[in-house]
Design a binder for these strands. Sequence first.
DNA 1: GAACGGCATGCGCATCTTGATCGTGGAAGA
DNA 2: TCTTCCACGATCAAGATGCGCATGCCGTTC
Lengths: 221, 221
Amino acid sequence: MRILIVEDEPNLGKQLKSTLEGAGYAVDLSVDGEDGHYMGSTENYDAVILDLGLPEIDGLTVLDRWRKEGRQFPVLVLTARDSWSDKVAGLDAGADDYLAKPFQTEELIARLRALIRRASGNASSELNVGNVRLDTRSGRVTLDGQPVKLTAQEYKLLSYLMHHKGKVVSRTELIEHIYDQDFDRDSNTIEVFVTRIRKKLGQDVISTIRGLGYSLEEPVS
Amino acid sequence: MRILIVEDEPNLGKQLKSTLEGAGYAVDLSVDGEDGHYMGSTENYDAVILDLGLPEIDGLTVLDRWRKEGRQFPVLVLTARDSWSDKVAGLDAGADDYLAKPFQTEELIARLRALIRRASGNASSELNVGNVRLDTRSGRVTLDGQPVKLTAQEYKLLSYLMHHKGKVVSRTELIEHIYDQDFDRDSNTIEVFVTRIRKKLGQDVISTIRGLGYSLEEPVS
DNA sequence: GAACGGCATGCGCATCTTGATCGTGGAAGA
DNA sequence: TCTTCCACGATCAAGATGCGCATGCCGTTC
């Protein structure tokens, strides 16, 4: 899952970035509204964290532009404490959730998770495909109830596929969502991780559609 | 489905081409307006992606010429960001949709899909013929609700037929839309794939019209 | 130094293609 | 109407192609 943070205060921004990376997200950080807007328009994010108190362009303006451009990603807005007017304005402009500064990083992560879950149309924090279960809250994966140890990248890849189960996902799409900007597009890392996941969870979990991509949901032979 | 991209910036062009090929399209790429216009006039495309900011000939001119020549294919225009005048002019000149640069590849694909769908007169992303259903979004095919595994080429062929159900489609037309330029036209690949699809989906799905081609929609016996 | 992520290589096999052969529909003639 | 023949399409099998897989190594990080 790939996140964009638009936050003008460098320290807070960096801290958030590393916290979220620790939680298993691919994170891009933008320090002003202009650049942030551009990134959000260009790249594919699964969620955006947007500080309203930006210099240059106002956060609300950025949000508004995105929505006018048709960007669908869920946006979590950060506001100064007790700024009710900001909150209302933010929700009007198309924010999906909001959080008052200062906040606990844990709460941020929880809300983020909920946001992404809702956006992909899943009600619960557990995703099931076949005998594999993935809990987005705890970040745990089980096979037939038995815990399986996945590395960070393996988890990201599996998680994305499970959030889009049934859909045929191309390698390009996977790369765009698992890595942050600037990643060599012609390398076989995706294949390698698919192989490793299959070793841990069984061959049938991820099915290959030659020439198109990968898909969850066991193939009907 | 066969797409023409007219884009002067080589990197973006190549990237688009490979992304769209990954999504299952046959793609021709042209790097200048003159050549692009020629290709569009000569070959049969299901959709065209046209950058307005071309050197030599302006993209609008190209579009205008095509329309004057009676070319009907849907055109998706790429414009510089926030260039409203370009947008208006493009739509006036006969563009079917427009997308501001920079854009997300996924959005491009979604719009392209919608364009092709609309052009073939379908409202939804699901195409139904008899007991066969094809979902263009997820790239899946079901027979009586049961998923059927098709290879990339089989899918392309079936998809084209389903987008033109009822119409008699000649073998030449199929070849032109499933492969990109430079493909040996006298071979019996089409017949082979028709046979294979029939094996997977049933004999009656594709009916043969001798001397003319193939058609979906069960024959009236 | 252990674990993980990324990269390169060679191999195997699914898929595509081709050519050859078989089957069949339809026109023409009796 | 029936028969014959021809051409077009269907099917099959073998060969070529290239995609995806596995493996091992190296650099980096913790």
